[in-house]
Design a protein around this nucleic acid. Sequence first.
DNA 1: CTGAAAGCGCTTACAG
DNA 2: CTGAAAGCGCTTACAG
Lengths: 346, 346
Amino acid sequence: VNKSVTLKDIAEIAGVSTRTVARVVHNNGYVAADTRKQIEQVIEKTGYRVNIVARGLRKQQTFTIGHLLRGLIPNPFFAGVALGVEQQANKAGYSVLLFNVQQDTQRERQGLETLLERRVDAVIFTTACDAENVRMAMQSGTTVVQVERPTPVKTNLVLIDNYAGAVEAVEHLIDLGHRRIAFIGSKVNGVANPGYTAVDNDRLNGYLDTLREYDIPIDDRLIDLSSDYSVEDSEAATANIHRLLELSPPPTALFVGWDYMAAGIMQVLYERGLRIPDDMSIVGFDNTLAPYLSPPLTTVEQPMMEIGRAAARVAIEQIEREDIPPLQTVKLSTNLLIRESTGPAQ
Amino acid sequence: VNKSVTLKDIAEIAGVSTRTVARVVHNNGYVAADTRKQIEQVIEKTGYRVNIVARGLRKQQTFTIGHLLRGLIPNPFFAGVALGVEQQANKAGYSVLLFNVQQDTQRERQGLETLLERRVDAVIFTTACDAENVRMAMQSGTTVVQVERPTPVKTNLVLIDNYAGAVEAVEHLIDLGHRRIAFIGSKVNGVANPGYTAVDNDRLNGYLDTLREYDIPIDDRLIDLSSDYSVEDSEAATANIHRLLELSPPPTALFVGWDYMAAGIMQVLYERGLRIPDDMSIVGFDNTLAPYLSPPLTTVEQPMMEIGRAAARVAIEQIEREDIPPLQTVKLSTNLLIRESTGPAQ
DNA sequence: CTGAAAGCGCTTACAG
DNA sequence: CTGAAAGCGCTTACAG
């Protein structure tokens, strides 16, 4: 079965036209019952499989969604989004062409170029590196969706309510009696993407507003924004933990921008022989590493899969339907998962 | 730029034949210098981009590799492999169509069907669920590579030397003075894939042979093979840890089949107030979660990216070259990473 | 050095 | 209910 069977082959063997074979393959239009049966047999026997490449050329639609992903590694957040995109796409008959951009503008550019050459029906940026690339995607005329950290380019959007997530986390700590709550986050969104900091600002503002709401004084020394979202910088951030712990009085709780950084901080605490939550409460963000840490980490869950599904859903709606506003925005909620890393303030 | 520009458009605008335009696009064959310059200008101005779908149909090659992956989540091992495949594929001008099979034979079957309809140049199974699907891929005449846990179907193979990895881990513990070393692994490879247990057997044999080599008696109570590689069963396995700890004398070291299970066990130890490595040494397998745990976990690293790269390399060699044996096998080594979870036996 | 033309495998408007 | 035929956008053997 090296040279594959074609529609035309089937037609010849069955002694009908390709038009008729096509009808039974797509199961639409009328075909005489016994003609149909006979054609079905030939298809069965020859192991015929439609050639989607040919169909794509003819229909000018590839049923493929391109997904430019920040990176599958190390943060499984993006893997979750990728999986969500895939599930929803598959359900609607689409496949997904995945490109790991690894935070590299050049790779993103090249990935996009390839996707466009392959005539994907839509491209999803799960955290674009470079607004210029998003703009280029839009100019090509394809459907585009930006996820999580959008550039200022106007496209379809899937966002997360980071502000509410931060509020919920900080309120949880306040409920437990904490007053000295440190915020360890980020103010830049990766080297390649310095401008688009809405996510980080929202989280910081959630923290600040909640403290104000409860009349808790804001102490700048408890706010560490020195970290990037890369692993290396996460390590730099954990170095700062030592400084935080020397403060008098030190914080009794930490609200940390992502689970990976929380994990690094927990390593420092472990080394020092401090117990969680007895000596320090910690809340993370993402729910990636959280369930696996010791102790299991209380964290603000991001609905990774749902984010991916929403992105694919929006993309496919734009591709297939006319009766829809040209640019949609979906905003999804986070969810505080309380586990064992948070306890009453001592 | 909604209706995209074609080669023919370029030819008409430039007043030459498509043949000539094709020559400058592919940068092969002779074209008069000024004709070339002029054509390049038209391409630039119109924003022309080759249509790979059309090319694929014509050349009968799609420059696409299909990757059927056990699952991006939760174990980042597979994400690492996926990334490796992608990097190597991209380097050679291929894209990859990824399908998360999620250990579901039906999904695997459907993913394969789609890949074949899309006429991918090769399909990679990173841990196939069902031998029947591998067989079907082979029958279609495409190139196939099986990675890590192959079914018995004869295909190209990328394997890991699990035996040597286990030996190295156990020797490390013996060097540290441990004699009561427990092995916590798996004897089944997931519900959907009960037969293909070479990986698990190799690790177990590495453990057993090493103990024998050092004249350490084998104690069946120290061997727990009750776990599957799913998260749920990982939890079941950690339950068994309590039993292990009640033994007299209890083990002083644990060799655990994968980092995720080690993480679960570390949670149990943390809860009990036991210190690692003072009260218990632990070695994991994979190097996925290992760097993020408290304390950082000594583990047998699997070269995830390299595994993926090897798979793509083998696939592409088979596609592009004639002077190559039809079925290749690549075997890759593990690497023991010593971190802070292992220390001298007390 | 360059052109006219066939064909990859589909889908589909148009006839009959 | 079914057929003959055009065309999607490329690539490439064959002429010239």
